[in-house]
Design a protein around this nucleic acid. Sequence first.
DNA 1: CCAAAAGTGTTAAAGTTACACCCATGG
DNA 2: CCATGGGTGTAACTTTAACACTTTTGG
Lengths: 221, 221
Amino acid sequence: MKRAPLPLRFAVVAVDVVVFTLIDDVLHVLLQPHNSEYYKGKLALVGGIIYESESTDEAAQRILAQKSHVSPDYIEQLQTFSAINRDKRNRVVSVAHLALLRNPLDIVVPAGTLFVPVTAVSSLAYDHTEMLQVAIGRLQAKLGYTTIAKYLLPAQFTLTQLQTLYESILATTIDKRNFRKKILALRLVEETGERQSGVQNRPASLYRFVHQQQNDFSLFV
Amino acid sequence: MKRAPLPLRFAVVAVDVVVFTLIDDVLHVLLQPHNSEYYKGKLALVGGIIYESESTDEAAQRILAQKSHVSPDYIEQLQTFSAINRDKRNRVVSVAHLALLRNPLDIVVPAGTLFVPVTAVSSLAYDHTEMLQVAIGRLQAKLGYTTIAKYLLPAQFTLTQLQTLYESILATTIDKRNFRKKILALRLVEETGERQSGVQNRPASLYRFVHQQQNDFSLFV
DNA sequence: CCAAAAGTGTTAAAGTTACACCCATGG
DNA sequence: CCATGGGTGTAACTTTAACACTTTTGG
């Protein structure tokens, strides 16, 4: 009779965070040089081991702050990655998170840490390339039925900024008139009464997201 | 200066599985009496500790087979639950899974284990009530844009069976003509050429799901 | 012939798509 | 006055929603 394998009593539970932000209307992800002997020369998502005293969401926040000085405007759990050899050193089960950051340029990140356009990311350490793919898919999907975009824009923004965000992240183009009709008809945003200044063309009206959470519409058919 | 807390070196990583199945067109969930000193008298989802040699998905399959003799037709990861006191005995991080089972009546489950209509479930052990809620929400959402329903129906089924499945799980009613038009227009299913037998009314045509995965339509606006 | 469920079409309303020009501002 | 991006309406088409009767079978 075969002996049953042992329960995994000493699992390392980690979190990894895919932090997205917009720089010049282009989606960037926060990356760091990994600090292990393997995967030499590769970049990795920001991640680390959870403490006894915190949930994975709390761990994600803490690790982001400690390792990258980033304090995201939004965070949610993405998916747990548990392939046996996903980390070549130990058995590590990692809970991946998706985070969004509004003002990347206000942050002084540690040396080596950087924001990379997602289209320019080549292969990352561990299974982080897969995590990034899952995160991009999730962000794209959620743009369609939530107001998650608000965590990538300033408190006040123009409808053109909002449209450009959608076009950039979804890699499509959208008709300006139809986009504005839809967004306004759904009452996702409201005018602040203010307008742009310091532009050398007609200043656009500034909008804000309406406060109550709105997570059940459908922007694209 | 305050000492930093210790990394969690001895986390227990568990899986819990929400197994859904249809019995008499009603959604049921697989439950077992828990076997810990706490939560006396409460039912719990099927769950257990992962092995060193398996991913969480593999663990979910194994634990289901061992503890409930169930071999599901579909399984996916749902969400990871990591609140510090979610298990009163130890720090346990649990990766919840959603599973679907086609033929519950073919299975002889162990004594105590049972399928309970989801509407009849009261409070479960641990955070399993929350897991069940998340699972129901996920299943409902996925009915709208995937062919996940196929894992709850026999290989051949009538359009009425399919519609009843939707109505039952979504707790709505649907117009028969509109439902059939939509399902057929999307080419989600095709006629097998066979018909019902042994019914004392006009026998319905039997359909099967078209093979290729279809995960990007929208059934309900 | 009766009971039971299967199967089928049309119309009005709503929503979506495609498309082009004038407006306001700063320099 | 020019360059730049802001802002706006309509018509064709597609999709959705509402609605009731005839058909086929077994008993």
